[in-house]
Amino acid sequence: MHRTLARAAFRRGPLPCVQRALVPAAFVAAAAGLGRPALAADWYTGAEPAGARDAWIVSVDTAATVSSQGSQFAGATATAAPAGTLQTSGLRLRADTLIGSYRTGTGLGQQAEAAAMIGYGWVWPEAVLSAFVGLNVRRNEMPGLEASVRNAGGLKAALDVYARPTDGTMVHATGTYASTFNAYYGRVRGGVAVMGGFLGPEVAVLGDDYYRQWRVGAHWSAFQFGALQVGIAAGYLHDQTRKGGLYTTVDMRAGF
């Protein structure tokens, strides 16, 4: 028996330090199924009954994260299927922007990034795999950082897999890397169906030439709020500058 998976992701690109934690890197893929009612799913909102609204060619994802460490960020990502829809294997185009601030040992750091990427989504009945590569530019301001290296551009790559082993479970893993500041980000989430969505644990690691952080928390994904799909996550974080703290992330997705 098969089912349809349709997912859209954020992304958030591999920004230095705290910013990438709040907006994970993400991707869009979809699969067509036969033999039973279709489901639409993504890595942070889970599953909802599929319909005409899920035959998207563009998805827009936004995210905002705050932490007790003094960081706050917001980002938006648009992913498009130029030939076909996001429910079928094929070419993907992605653009994202991010802006935010975070605390360092010597003061306030600020950063902003824009990225453009091209990729491909492979779709199977029970899983989707997406890969992207492209260019990014970033401005990173922090105490002690020389003006000559505050603005940087380079290559960016990302890989994402989403699977539904059973109707009541999901697994998602994503990773990104950028040559600018050697920034990296990885996040793994799992969940079981609860109250129309998925509830489960998440872990994340991130860092760059100037910062490192890890997170452990829980997410509840897959509840509908009007025309939007909404997800929320919260938990414990630890960074090299301010040590332990708490974080909260809110994700939203819309499609066209």
Rank of each mutant, 00 (worst) to 15 (best):
A234V: 10
A74M: 03
D61T: 14
L108G: 01
Q69L: 10
G197C: 05
F132C: 00
H219K: 02
A31C: 13
D61H: 14
A6S: 12
R212A: 05
R164I: 08
G35H: 10
T79I: 03
K243D: 12
D208A: 03
Y162T: 14
G175F: 06
N182L: 05
I232C: 09
L108Q: 09
A127P: 02
M117Q: 09
T169Q: 09
R164G: 06
A31R: 10
H172L: 10
V28Y: 06
S67P: 04
A55V: 09
E202D: 04
G84N: 00
Y236M: 14
G144N: 10
P165W: 10
Y211H: 11
A52Y: 09
P37G: 09
S67M: 07
R212N: 11
Y102R: 03
A74L: 01
D167Q: 11
D239G: 06
A52P: 08
A183H: 01
A233T: 14
Y236C: 07
F225L: 15
Q240W: 06
Y102M: 03
F198G: 01
A50W: 11
D42H: 05
Q213G: 05
A204S: 07
A254R: 14
A78R: 00
T241C: 07
G235T: 12
S89E: 04
P165L: 14
P24W: 05
A63W: 06
G191C: 02
D54L: 08
G217D: 01
A183Y: 01
E202G: 03
R138S: 13
A81M: 00
G186H: 02
V250F: 11
T45S: 15
L86S: 01
C17T: 02
R7H: 12
P14R: 05
Y120M: 06
A116L: 12
V205E: 09
W56H: 08
R92F: 02
V58F: 08
V192N: 02
P37R: 12
V18H: 09
G90V: 04
A254I: 15
A29C: 11
R138Y: 07
A38N: 12
A40Y: 13
A76N: 02
F73A: 06
M1W: 07
A21R: 06
